[in-house]
Each structure stands twice: as structure tokens, then as C-alpha cells.
């Protein structure tokens, strides 16, 4: 088991945003965290990554790295500078193949602040993949990508997971989630509603397909 979260609770002011959330993730697995807007997906990731405080529960497992959604870190620096810095901070060397894999070759000398939404998203994914941590949390990795890029990123993530890394992805597009993930954690209103493979979820909900599961359980 790479990551075990048990009974996680978090509040914003007096409002509970996560209540007793538990899940596990295993090596070489891609776990998709799905749920309606405001379900607490991003809060869950930030609590697990310890960049947001939580008020109850435990997080155990191997070292992890979390890439927030839609960030443009160090907007005055170049794409190459950002990726090299990220790798160096973990005593690692930048994998040059990431540039080609994520269509970043032509953008490596562009400033991060000048990137489009999709370009910034590919940079964010590259940053995550350049960090040698056994568990990687990506918030909305397909948001802003076109169909071809989405498939390309899915294949890169699949390849990365096959090498032993655990990937936990927050995805609001259920079709993308269905294609990319091995198992799912369904969140609703800050609570974990269900966890399992697509067949486990469909049999529990008595429906077919992830979209129907989503509608039935949330």
C-alpha cells in the first residue's frame, strides 16, 4: 500500500469540508477521485499533501508530491528553468524525454506566465513526473487539454504507473476518469461515498457506467 488515508476531517472556518474521508492507493495503481463540484476533491489533495491543515484523521504512506490545478509557478521564468529547478530540488536530473512526450520542446524557453491554459497544464504534469516520489497527486490533469493531448497524457501516466508509481488523479470529466483510472474514490459533500473498481461501483449502485454510478450515489 502506497497511501492510506483514514478518517480525514477538515474545516474552513466553522464549515466542515471533509468528513471522515478514508481511502487507500496501491503501487502501480491509478486512483481517480471523482465527485461533483464542491465535493472536496482539491481540499482532500491539499490535506493529504500537507499544504492545508486538517483537523482529524491520519495520512500514512510513502513520500508523495502534489501538483495543484491550473498553477503557473514562477511566471517570469522559462519552462526549462522551472522543470530543472523542480528536479534539482529532489536531487534528481530532468528527464529530457518529458519535453518531447508532453509537446514542450518548442516551449522550453517560453516564460511560464506566457503559456496558454493547455500549455501550463502540460508543464504542471511534467513537473509532477519529474519528481522522483512514489506517489503523485495530480489535480485535474486533463483540464484544458484537447482530445489528442488528453489521450497522450493518459498514455504517459499509464506508462509511469506501470513503472511502480502510484497516481491519484482528481478528475471531473467522468469519461476521462473511466478511461484513465483503475479504481475510483467517489466524494460527495466532503464524504467518501464509495471506493472500488468500475465493476464494484456499478454492482453496488445497480447501474451501468461511471456516469450512472455518479448520478445514483451523489
Amino acid at each position: 500500500m502506497s497511501l492510506a488515508v483514514a478518517g480525514l476531517c477538515a474545516r474552513r472556518g466553522s464549515r466542515a469540508v471533509l468528513t471522515d474521508v478514508s481511502f487507500t492507493a496501491h503501487p502501480s495503481e491509478i486512483l481517480g477521485v471523482i465527485g461533483p463540484n464542491g465535493a472536496g476533491k482539491t481540499t482532500l489533495f491539499e490535506c493529504v499533501a500537507a499544504v492545508l491543515p486538517f483537523h482529524g484523521g491520519t495520512v500514512h504512506g510513502e513520500p508523495l508530491f502534489y501538483v495543484p490545478d491550473a498553477i503557473r509557478p514562477w511566471p517570469d521564468q522559462t519552462v526549462r528553468w522551472t522543470l530543472e529547478l523542480t528536479a534539482r530540488m529532489f536531487d534528481s536530473r530532468l528527464d529530457e524525454t518529458l519535453f518531447a512526450d508532453l509537446d514542450l520542446v518548442a516551449l522550453q524557453h517560453a516564460t511560464v506566465g506566457s503559456l496558454s491554459k493547455g500549455e501550463a497544464k502540460r508543464l504542471d504534469i511534467a513537473m509532477g513526473l519529474s519528481v522522483p516520489r512514489p506517489v503523485l497527486l495530480l489535480d485535474e490533469p486533463f483540464d484544458g487539454l484537447d482530445l489528442r493531448q488528453t489521450r497522450q497524457v493518459m498514455s504517459i501516466l499509464r506508462r509511469d504507473a506501470a513503472k511502480g508509481r502510484t497516481l491519484v488523479l482528481s478528475i471531473h470529466q467522468l469519461r476521462d476518469a473511466e478511461r484513465a483510472c483503475d479504481r475510483f474514490l467517489l466524494l460527495d459533500n466532503g464524504r467518501s461515498v464509495a471506493e472500488g473498481t468500475i465493476s464494484e461501483l456499478t454492482s453496488r449502485a445497480g447501474v451501468s457506467g461511471l456516469e450512472e454510478v455518479f448520478l445514483a450515489l451523489t
Binding site: 502534489y66 501538483v67 495543484p68 509557478p73
Partner: peptide, 8 residues
């Protein structure tokens, strides 16, 4: 820019 969340 949320770079802080990476740096942490």
C-alpha cells in the same frame, strides 16, 4: 502563483 504549494 501557488508556487508556494510546490515549495512546501
Amino acid at each position: 502563483s501557488d508556487a508556494l504549494k510546490l515549495m512546501l
